[in-house]
Design a protein around this nucleic acid. Structure first.
Lengths: 193, 193
DNA sequence: GATCGCATGTAACGGGTTACATGATTGT
DNA sequence: ACAATCATGTAACCCGTTACATGCGATC
C-alpha cells in the first residue's frame, strides 16, 4: 500500500535546479528550512532565489530521494524544526551536477527589451532613462564592493569555499563594470549626435 | 450577455512583459503571429524569448485592449492569417513602458550556481569545467561579432532603430568579453595556486 | 509519396510568486 | 499591548515549455 505523499517525488530521480541550490548550501553546513530560505535571499540569492513556499516541499523531496537527512530539534517557534544534513550520495550528485555544462539559458533581460523600443521615445527622455539605469548598476557595483571588503576583513581562514565565493563576486563586479562603461559610451554617442 | 472569451483579458489593463516585447516588434512593422514567433527566436530572442503557444493568446489580449489591430489575409497555409498593426495607444503604452525603470530581476544564473559548489570537485575536473564554460562564452561572442559585421555591411540606411540595435549588440559583446577575461583570471589563479 | 515550411491554435505540466494560515518567543 | 522575528506549511495563480492537433503548398 503506497502511503499518500504530500509532495510530488522526483519523476526522473534528478533534483531540480532549486534542489541543487539547496544541496550547495547544505554541503557547506547543516541548516534548517528557515535558515535556507534566508540564505536563498542574501548570499545565494544573487544568482538564484526562492521563497520558503518552494523550499519546504523541495526539502521533502530531497529527503525522500536520500540526498539529505533531516533531524527534528526543539528550537524556538511553535513547531519542531528540522535541521538537514547532506548525505554522501547528495554530495556526489552535487559534484556531478556542478561539472555538467549548464543548459543555454533563454536570457530574459527586461532592460535590453526596453532599450529595443527606446528609439520611439524623444531623445531627452531616452537619455534620462539610460542615465537612471546606469545609476542602478553603479549602485549594484557599490554593494558588491562593500561585500568584497567584508571578505578582506575576515581573511586569515582561507577555506576551500572562500576562493570560489570571492570568484563569483568578482564575476558580478566585472559584469557591472562592463555594463557601466557601455552606458558611458552610449550616452556620449547620444550627446555627440 | 457577455460573450465567452477564449483568452484571459488583462485584469489591470497592463500588458505583460511579453506583450510589450510584441508591441516593440510591431512598432517597427506590421507582422503576423507566425512572423512574430520567428522574430522572438532570432533578433529579440537574445534578450526575450517565447514560443508560439504563448504568442497567439497574447496577441488576442493585446487586440482586445485595443493596443494592436488585426486584419485577416489569405496568405499561404490553410487558415486565414492575421496581420497585426500597432495602434496609436499601443505606441504610447510602449513608449511609457520603455522609460519606466525595470524592476530588479531575481537574476537566475545556473553557471554561477554551479561555481558556488565547485569547491568540492577535484581541481583538475574543476579546471576542465571552467575551461568548457569559457569556450561557450567565446562562442557566443563570436556569434555577436558576426552579427556586427552584418550591420556594417548594409549601412547607408541609418534608420532611428539601427542605433539602438547596434547598442544592444555592443552591450552583449561587452558583457561576454568581461566574463571571458574573468575566466582567464580565474583559471590563472587556479594554476598558480 | 514523404518531408519541410507555413500557419494557427489548445492542453498539460512544472516552476515561481503571492497570499493565506498558525503560533511561540523576544523586544518596544 | 503590539510588532517583529522565528518557523513551517498549503493554496491559488501566472508564466513559460512541451506536446498535441490540423492542414495547405512546395520541394525532393
Amino acid at each position: 500500500m503506497a502511503v499518500a505523499k504530500r509532495f510530488r517525488a522526483y519523476a526522473d530521480a534528478m533534483p531540480s535546479t532549486l534542489g541543487f541550490a539547496l544541496l550547495g548550501l547544505l554541503a557547506r553546513k547543516p541548516r534548517t528550512g528557515y535558515e535556507l530560505s534566508r540564505a536563498m535571499k542574501k548570499p545565494v540569492g544573487y544568482f538564484w532565489s526562492a521563497g520558503h513556499s518552494q523550499i519546504y516541499p523541495e526539502l521533502a523531496r530531497l529527503e525522500d530521494a536520500k540526498l539529505i537527512r533531516g533531524k527534528d530539534e526543539h528550537g524556538p517557534g511553535p513547531r519542531q524544526n528540522r535541521r538537514y544534513t547532506i548525505s554522501a550520495s547528495g554530495r556526489r550528485a552535487l559534484a556531478a551536477w556542478a561539472t555538467e555544462p549548464a543548459p543555454p539559458q533563454p536570457a530574459r533581460n527586461e532592460e535590453l527589451l526596453k532599450l529595443y523600443s527606446l528609439w520611439l521615445v524623444d531623445p531627452d527622455r531616452a537619455r534620462e532613462t539610460l542615465a537612471g539605469q546606469r545609476e542602478q548598476h553603479r549602485h549594484t557595483l557599490a554593494q558588491y564592493e562593500v561585500m568584497e571588503q567584508g571578505f578582506d576583513e575576515d581573511d586569515g581562514e582561507s577555506s576551500p569555499t572562500r576562493f570560489f565565493d570571492r570568484a563569483s563576486l568578482r564575476r558580478g563586479m566585472a559584469g557591472e563594470r562592463a555594463i557601466i562603461k557601455w552606458f558611458d559610451g552610449l550616452l556620449a554617442d547620444l550627446d555627440a549626435r
